[in-house]
């Protein structure tokens, strides 16, 4: 019993210290944004890595999610003769929940893992010490350009995911399942407002920030060679995925107060 309590206590301390460390890294990055030298070259390179190169994975995710969601909604609503509502439901779900959450999870897997592995390898091979020895602050050089690139890229990726999801839903609903196109589009436009799109993009922005700081923190804390880098990478993906799901609930509740469903 005492062992179990000790183990739980140890886990709690590790969780609290990890959370605290990630928040402090965020604060340090905010300070570096004003105190450090801007590194536009690195920023553009990360825009390319995070934003441009994540498009395929996010578009495929959005397209098939929209398609399958339209099909399932049709199968259920068809029973009660409400198939014309499919467009509205797919659109709102993609904007408010599926687009941002699934894009966040995919980016956490693709970009978060790469970030923590790269920074972790730099840590265990003394490259971060070499940066510091040359008078370069690792937060300025490694974290800030990635955070800025992620803050620009994620809302755009989410917007793309939403758009492709709705298009795929339209294709499945109208072309394959024979829902009248006019009803599909009219109901979609009637029930979807710009606040739904803004909600999705705001969520994407928050998820992007969470992914960057969790992944960078895991990388910067890596130790014990290759095993440690592997551990940091796994932790980065698991922790950022869980945080996205948890944060999504609170964001949904909070954003619903700011942008209530009409």
């Amino acid at each position: 019993m005492r062992n179990l309590a000790a183990r739980l206590g140890k886990r709690f301390v590790a969780f609290a210290s990890g959370t605290g460390g990630t928040i402090l890294l965020g604060a340090e990055a905010l300070e570096a944004l004003f105190a450090g030298r801007p590194r536009w070259g690195l920023f553009l390179q990360h825009i390319l890595d995070i934003g441009w190169r994540s498009q395929l994975v996010v578009l495929v995710t959005g397209a098939f999610t929209g398609a399958v969601f339209a099909a399932q909604t049709f199968f259920q609503f068809n029973k009660v003769g409400m198939e014309s509502a499919v467009g509205a439901i797919v659109s709102i779900a993609m904007c408010r929940e599926l687009g941002p959450v699934l894009s966040g999870l995919m980016v956490a897997g693709r970009v978060g893992a790469a970030m923590s592995a790269e920074i972790g390898t730099m840590k265990v091979t003394e490259q971060i010490d070499a940066l510091r020895a040359m008078g370069v602050n690792p937060v300025d050089y490694l974290v800030v350009p990635r955070a800025l690139a992620m803050m620009i890229s994620m809302p755009l990726l989410v917007a793309e995911c939403i758009a492709v999801g709705i298009l795929a839903g339209y294709f499945v609903g109208v072309d394959l399942l024979r829902i009248p196109g006019a009803y599909f589009v009219n109901n979609m436009l009637h029930f979807t407002s710009w606040t739904d799109v803004v909600t999705g993009c705001v969520k994407g922005l928050v998820f992007g920030v969470l992914i960057v700081f969790v992944a960078c923190k895991q990388g910067l804390d890596a130790k014990d060679g290759a095993v440690g880098v592997g551990r940091a990478t796994t932790e980065a993906v698991v922790v950022s995925s869980l945080i996205i799901l948890i944060a999504n609930f609170f964001l949904t509740m909070g954003l619903n107060i700011i942008f209530p469903v009409l």
Binding site: T121, M122, T125, E126, A130, A133
Partner: peptide, 12 residues
């Protein structure tokens, strides 16, 4: 300062 690290610590 200049510093030469044990494993060189070159940027990959």
């Amino acid at each position: 300062f200049g510093m030469l690290f044990q494993g060189a610590a070159l940027f990959d």
